[in-house]
Simulated assay, not measured.
Amino acid sequence: MSTQIGIALAFLCAIAANLGFFYKHRGCNEVPTIDVKHPLASAKALWGSKWFAAGMGLGFVGWALHVGAIAMAPLSTVQVVLSGGVVLIAVMADKLFGFSVDRRQWWGLGLMACGLALLAFTMPGGHGPGGYSLEAMVAFEGVLLGLGGLLLLGPRTGAPAEHHGIMLAAATGILFGVCNVAVKALTEVIGMHGIVGILSPWVVVAVLASATAFYASAMSLQDGDAVSVIAVTGTTANIACIAGGIIVFGDPMPQDLLGIAGTALAFIMVVVASALTPAPIRSTAAAKAGVALGGAAA
């Protein structure tokens, strides 16, 4: 019975998290452009939007439901449910928020959901032996922070404007991964040393990654297509967390040929889906032009 409850909580988590992102997208696009040189003013403007505040609230609810889900059901089962939740992005965009979702994006989201579900199925159940390698932790977090930094700088280094939102979304997902891996390490430290473990440097890493992701996410929702940005953010964060579990905490990998082949295929499917999910450049440009004209007419 507990597994069924966990599955239900995971499904509700997918709904809350995705719905929260759409609310934040609406809020982000009714405030001035995020200016990293004035972070406090930008944060005040964002939180001043009722849509954005509601989205953040739903995001917290989604996080709480996720914690409840993994406490009640096997992690692999929860991952499968959350993977299927990727398709909800298109349904919500089309039915609730009036976004146009083209066939290419439907295919991309469907392939992404299948790839993530296959990855969850092929990964062995259970966690690592406990504890983590400090060297692996430092190296992994350092690589992720480097990749995230490059993606954050992309819009400032001459990257095509139509790719800015996707690059920022990928950076956001990576930073969420940095934060989640740091929090996991923090729980290990507290488990070994008690409440004094809260003084661990991983607290600083988690806070800085979370704060940076807050602004990166807002900028991605302002610059990019909502469907693409939400899908890429969630998928990148999911992949980063799975990789962290394997590399840092020693979570088991598939040992048989079928499992290895399935895992490799799953990653290929996610990569191809990530390329399909962004809206075509021409339609994105046209949509932005339409918004601009609409705003001018108003």
Rank of each mutant, 00 (worst) to 15 (best):
L40G: 11
M56E: 10
A139Q: 14
A240H: 05
L265C: 06
F249Q: 02
V67D: 08
I195G: 05
N238V: 12
I198D: 02
M123N: 08
F22L: 04
L293F: 13
C114N: 06
F60G: 07
D225T: 04
L208S: 09
T263A: 11
V31F: 05
A298E: 05
A287E: 12
N238M: 11
G250D: 09
V81L: 12
C179I: 02
A159M: 15
F249K: 00
G125I: 06
A90E: 05
T122M: 13
I190Q: 01
Y23Q: 10
A264W: 10
P124I: 09
D223I: 01
L152C: 06
S228F: 01
T172M: 11
A287N: 10
I190K: 02
A90W: 09
P254F: 03
L12G: 05
V81K: 01
G146Y: 12
A264D: 09
S76C: 06
V36Y: 13
Y215F: 15
W107V: 08
A237W: 03
P201H: 11
A298I: 08
T236P: 04
L111S: 02
K50S: 10
A16M: 09
F22Y: 13
A69M: 04
P32T: 12
M167G: 01
F214P: 03
K95L: 15
G20L: 04
L46K: 00
A226H: 02
G110D: 02
L134M: 14
T172F: 10
G194H: 06
A136W: 14
D225P: 03
L199D: 13
I15L: 10
A209G: 04
W202H: 11
P280L: 15
E135W: 15
G290M: 10
L109P: 00
G290I: 09
V81Y: 09
T277H: 04
V183E: 08
K95P: 00
F21I: 10
S2M: 12
A218L: 09
T77H: 08
G68T: 04
V291A: 13
L119K: 05
S274R: 10
G84I: 00
S49F: 07
G110K: 06
P252Q: 12
G27A: 07
L145D: 04
I246G: 02
G125P: 05
S83K: 07
V232H: 06
A266F: 07
G55P: 00
G191D: 05
K44R: 14
T236F: 14
A275M: 08
L9G: 01
G244E: 01
T3A: 13
W107R: 07
T187I: 11
S283C: 12
T212R: 03
S283I: 08
K37F: 15
P160K: 15
F52K: 01
I166N: 01
L150A: 12
I70W: 07
H25C: 09
V101Y: 00
A45I: 08
G57C: 06
H38R: 14
A10G: 12
A161Q: 13
F11P: 01
V143T: 04
A237D: 07
I7K: 03
M269K: 06
